[in-house]
Structure formats: C-alpha cells, structure tokens
Amino acid sequence: MTDYNNSQKDVADFYEEEASTYDERFESIAGEYIHNRQVSIILEQLGDISGDTVLEIAAGTGRFTHVLAAQDAKVIVIDIAREMLEENRQRTPEAEFVHGTASELPFEPSSIDHCVTVNALNHIPGHWDVVADVKRVLKPGGKFLANYPNILSNRFPIGMYVNNQNRNVGKGVYTKWFNIFEVKRTLKSMGYNIEACIGDRFLPVKILPKITVPASRMTEEISGNPIMSNICVSPFVLARKE
C-alpha cells in the first residue's frame, strides 16, 4: 500500500473511532459558537439552494447536512469513515450517503450544483486532488465553499508545528494548515473564480470562552471584511466553477 493510501486509511480509522463522541466538542460554549458561526456563513454564502443538488464532503456526523437538507436541497454526502456516515444517516435520513474518497468522486461530470466541505480538507491527504475532482463534478457556475485553517492567523505557531509534524496537536491525525493567499492562487489556477473570503474567528475561542466568545461575536462583522478575513483562524473561501 502506498504512503498516500496509508494516510487515507489512518484518517478513516481515526474518524471511525471518533464518530460516537465527535459531537461532544460542540456542546461547550466555544463549540456551540463555532457551530452557529459556521452555519451562518454556509447559509449566507450558498443562498437559495432549493431544488439544487449539494455535495457535502466529509460531513462527519452531519452538523451541516441537516441544515442543508432543511433548505429543500438534495444533499449527497461522501465520507471515508463508515461510522460517521451511519451517525449522519440517523440524523438526516433524507440525504443520500456514499462511502468513498473525495479525491475520486463517483459522480458524472457537471452533475452537482454546489459543494460544501467544512473542517475537512485539512485532514485529507491529497486535498488539491479533492478540489480538482470537485471542479470536474460541478456544473458550470457551481459554487464550492470550504474553509482552511490559516497559518497567517494569530495561531501561526500552532500551524507551523502541525505542518512540521503533519499531525494535529494532541490526537495525531493527518492535518495541514494553509497560507490563505496560496489557497486563492491555487483555486484560480485550477479554473475557479474566487467570489468571497469570509473570516471565521480572530480569536482562539476555546481559551477562556466566557471572555473570548463574546469578544468574537463583536468582531464577526470586521472578520467578514475582505482584507481582515485573510488573518482569521479559519476563513471560508467561496469559489465558483467558470
């Protein structure tokens, strides 16, 4: 088995074990804030998706799947971890679920209206292969919305450590932090038009959340500024297939 496939298997094994407890991280003050903030970004950036086919990559337990389905969209989920798929299926049975890797999407060219992936590309070895295959399956004009842990944020030391180790801090799953400017350049070179970069958090809200969460709420409007979004912790980039 190649190193690439070994890395894929390691990620799958990690999230198989995480499936039953994954949602616990969003039950805290900070976790709830992060979830609600990300939901608001997704809904605002996708707009009206009623009747559209939306592909969600590595949706985990479905924190966003049921939100997308509630917009009267046809939601298709692909995930490498079967246990995550099962947790998600119980939450949103009306969605369609596919077990597989996002770098080899089992869909016809130009068959998907929009694609969303949150907190996932940074854990997928070969993430640019994923982005390229998303472009293949998107219809012309289709939206691709994803977020990227940003090494240019105030969490630079953590990002440097993670990229040096190719692992996140503490739990040992493959992780990559990105230079958000390189992300946008790469997306453009692959044939996407960049429509927005939306900031998600200036502050690491898990530290002293009773203080940092209210402070983050106060900075949300500023973080959405196109310039300031480039130094946020986990900016979302909205790209559209040409």
Results as ranks from 00 to 15, higher is better:
residue 206 K to R: 13
residue 205 V to Y: 07
residue 202 F to W: 09
residue 191 G to S: 09
residue 176 K to H: 11
residue 204 P to R: 13
residue 191 G to K: 12
residue 207 I to M: 15
residue 205 V to F: 10
residue 182 E to I: 06
residue 195 E to S: 14
residue 186 T to M: 15
residue 197 C to K: 09
residue 205 V to K: 05
residue 186 T to F: 10
residue 174 Y to A: 09
residue 199 G to I: 00
residue 199 G to E: 01
residue 195 E to M: 13
residue 202 F to Y: 11
residue 178 F to E: 00
residue 206 K to F: 12
residue 206 K to S: 13
residue 203 L to S: 05
residue 188 K to D: 05
residue 185 R to A: 08
residue 187 L to K: 06
residue 186 T to V: 08
residue 198 I to R: 04
residue 189 S to H: 09
residue 182 E to C: 09
residue 174 Y to C: 07
residue 179 N to G: 07
residue 175 T to R: 13
residue 206 K to V: 08
residue 177 W to M: 02
residue 190 M to W: 11
residue 193 N to M: 08
residue 199 G to Y: 00
residue 194 I to C: 14
residue 174 Y to F: 11
residue 183 V to A: 04
residue 177 W to F: 12
residue 203 L to I: 13
residue 188 K to T: 07
residue 179 N to D: 10
residue 178 F to G: 00
residue 187 L to V: 04
residue 182 E to Q: 11
residue 187 L to I: 07
residue 188 K to F: 05
residue 207 I to Q: 12
residue 173 V to A: 02
residue 185 R to K: 10
residue 201 R to I: 06
residue 180 I to M: 06
residue 204 P to S: 12
residue 202 F to L: 08
residue 198 I to A: 10
residue 186 T to H: 12
residue 206 K to G: 09
residue 207 I to R: 11
residue 179 N to M: 10
residue 179 N to T: 03
residue 173 V to E: 03
residue 200 D to F: 03
residue 181 F to L: 14
residue 196 A to D: 15
residue 176 K to E: 11
residue 192 Y to D: 01
residue 174 Y to M: 08
residue 192 Y to A: 01
residue 173 V to M: 06
residue 197 C to R: 07
residue 189 S to T: 04
residue 176 K to A: 02
residue 186 T to A: 13
residue 195 E to W: 13
residue 193 N to A: 14
residue 176 K to V: 10
residue 187 L to A: 09
residue 203 L to G: 04
residue 185 R to G: 05
residue 196 A to F: 10
residue 202 F to S: 01
residue 202 F to R: 06
residue 178 F to C: 00
residue 205 V to T: 13
residue 198 I to T: 13
residue 199 G to D: 01
residue 173 V to H: 05
residue 180 I to F: 02
residue 203 L to T: 04
residue 188 K to A: 07
residue 196 A to Q: 12
residue 199 G to S: 02
residue 203 L to Q: 06
residue 181 F to M: 15
residue 206 K to M: 06
residue 180 I to T: 04
residue 200 D to V: 04
residue 198 I to N: 05
residue 174 Y to S: 10
residue 188 K to E: 12
residue 198 I to L: 14
residue 200 D to H: 02
residue 176 K to N: 06
residue 198 I to P: 01
residue 189 S to D: 07
residue 204 P to G: 09
residue 179 N to S: 05
residue 185 R to T: 12
residue 203 L to D: 04
residue 193 N to V: 14
residue 174 Y to G: 10
residue 202 F to D: 00
residue 181 F to R: 10
residue 173 V to I: 10
residue 204 P to V: 12
residue 206 K to W: 11
residue 177 W to C: 03
residue 183 V to K: 01
residue 177 W to Y: 12
